[in-house]
Every structure is written in C-alpha cells, then in structure tokens.
Write a protein that binds this DNA or RNA. Structure first.
Length: 270
DNA sequence: CGTGCGGCCTGAATGC
DNA sequence: TGCATTCAGGCCGCAC
C-alpha cells in the first residue's frame, strides 16, 4: 500500500543513515532478492552516499557504483532499530557500522529488494520505463499524457505514465477533480484535466505533510502511523455520505480495483 | 500495440 | 464456534 507519499515519508525518516556504512546484510529469506541472492551474500561494506525516491521505489545510493533499491508493494516495511524479537516475515537485516539496524519485513512477500550497478539499473525495464513524477511534471507535459481512450483511473495507476500513484491517491484526486474513474482519458475537458493536475499535486503534498496514509497497516520506518487517512474524501468510505453533497458513496470495480466514487460529484465523460 | 484480467501472497473480515 | 470464502492492490505475464 505504500504509494508516493508513504515512500517519501519513509525516505525522510531514513535520511540520517546518509553517510553511514552498511557493514553486513543478514538474509532470513531470499525470495525477495534481485537480481540474485548471491549478490547479497557476497556484499561487502559500503557507505550510503544518498537516499532518494523514484515513484514508489526507495533508493539507497551506495559508494562504488551500487544501488540498493526497495519496492514495498503492498505490505513491505522498513523498520529502523526495531525491538527484538523482530516481527514475523522479517526477510533482511542490515547492520550499520555506526550501530543502526534496518530490517525489511513483508507479510505478503510481494515486495522485493535489488542490488544493481548503474549499468544494470539503466536496463532494468521497470526503471527504464518508469513515468514522470506527478509532483515534478509540468502542466504542459501532464496534459499530453491524456490522449488515449483508456479509463482515466487505469492511466493514473499506470507507473509507466505517472510514477507513484496507487489506489488511494487515484480515488482521492479523481473525486477532488470531479471526474468519474471510468471516464475516457481523451474525453476529459481541458479545464477538468487542469483540475485533476492541481488535485493530484494538492493531495500528494498534503499526504506527505501528514506522514502518509495508514488505512490498513502502513507505518513508517519508526513505526509511526500517518494521518492523511483522516482527510479521505472517498477512499474506503463507500456506503457513507459524500462530504460535499451527502449522496451515498458507491463502490465500483475499475480496472480490477475497488474504486469509491460519489455518483453525484464525479462526472462520467465517454 | 493497447487493454483487461488472473496470479502471486498472507491475514483480517465476512459468510454460513 | 469453526470452517470456508472473500478481499486488500502493485505489478507481471498472458490472452484477446
């Protein structure tokens, strides 16, 4: 469930590991390791030069041309200095020379961890094809993305088009823009599209300010819950009244995912 | 090529 | 109470 704001929050919480040295990696289970577990077994100490985010990816830039990359998918978590015993489904333990411990834990095992050189990174399809960051894209470039007949929600969730948006922020931004998720992308009037652009930025910025959304079980690297779930207009609120017009919010399936919409506030363009 | 859908995985919630 | 089923959704791979 960690989307852009959650990964950004995790990154910010880990930033002080910058400059520290990963001295040892302990593997509890190797299914999540890319390109191969050997890479992790043979790991030798390296300093962390920087910690960044791209879409939903969390990236540790290590010295001597190595990138440690996490994708948390649904239930992946990073915990800094967790109390012992470590939680069930802890897969990796990173020991730092300065005494810190970072663990990677993932109940559903969807997440993965990579050790890539810059050359490998460049050819990794997921990296190579990753779309623009919705917080850094200009309006002129944003509107050019909406030229297909795809349902607007599937377009927002497509990481090759925009990187970092998941179900929560797609539903929230579409509600704020007054657009039905099944609207065809190329049928959205320009003014509405501008509204979507603004809504996305607003929603993501606000969520980052509030430390992300803890709707199910998201917590940051220090085990802190986010607060943005208290600001949800629609996500997970089906059956409850719309906060703008009191109409009962509906749950529908769009591109295989649950979407919560206000049938009154969100207009469908076909 | 673009789109839609099943599979991956576990645990919580729901149904009977 | 207890067992079975459904659901959560990011991304890949396959079918159409």
């Amino acid at each position: 469930m960690p989307e852009l704001p959650e990964v950004e929050t995790i990154k910010n919480g880990l930033l002080y590991l910058k400059g520290q040295t990963i001295s040892q990696i302990t593997i509890k289970s190797s299914h999540c390791l890319r390109p191969h577990p050997d890479r992790f077994i043979q790991f030798r100490p390296r300093q962390v030069k920087n910690i960044t985010r791209r879409g939903k990816l969390l990236i540790f830039v290590l010295e001597r041309n190595l990138f440690l990359i996490f994708h948390l998918k649904m239930t992946g978590k990073l915990f800094l200095n967790p109390p012992s015993p470590y939680p069930k489904h802890t897969h990796l333990i990173f020991k730092f020379a300065q005494g810190q411990t970072l663990i990677f834990q993932d109940t559903r095992k969807f997440g993965f961890v990579c050790l890539f050189t810059s050359q490998e990174l460049k050819t990794w399809p997921f990296w190579k094809d990753l779309g623009k960051d919705p917080l850094r894209i200009a309006w002129e470039d944003f509107k050019k993305l909406f030229t297909s007949q795809a349902q607007v929600k599937s377009l927002l969730l497509n990481q090759k088009i925009l990187a970092g948006i998941g179900n929560i922020y797609a539903d929230e931004s579409l509600f704020l823009a007054g657009i039905h998720p099944q609207t065809k992308a190329n049928q959205i009037p320009a003014a509405k599209l501008k509204k979507l652009y603004t809504a996305l930025q607003k929603v993501l910025q606000k969520a980052i300010q509030l430390g992300g959304s803890s709707f199910r079980d998201y917590v940051d690297s220090l085990g802190q819950k986010g607060k943005f779930q208290e600001q949800f207009w629609v996500y997970g609120r089906y059956g409850k009244p719309c906060l703008q017009c009191q109409t009962t919010l509906e749950k529908i399936k769009v591109c295989g995912r649950t979407s919560t919409i206000c049938p009154q506030c969100q207009r469908l363009y076909l």
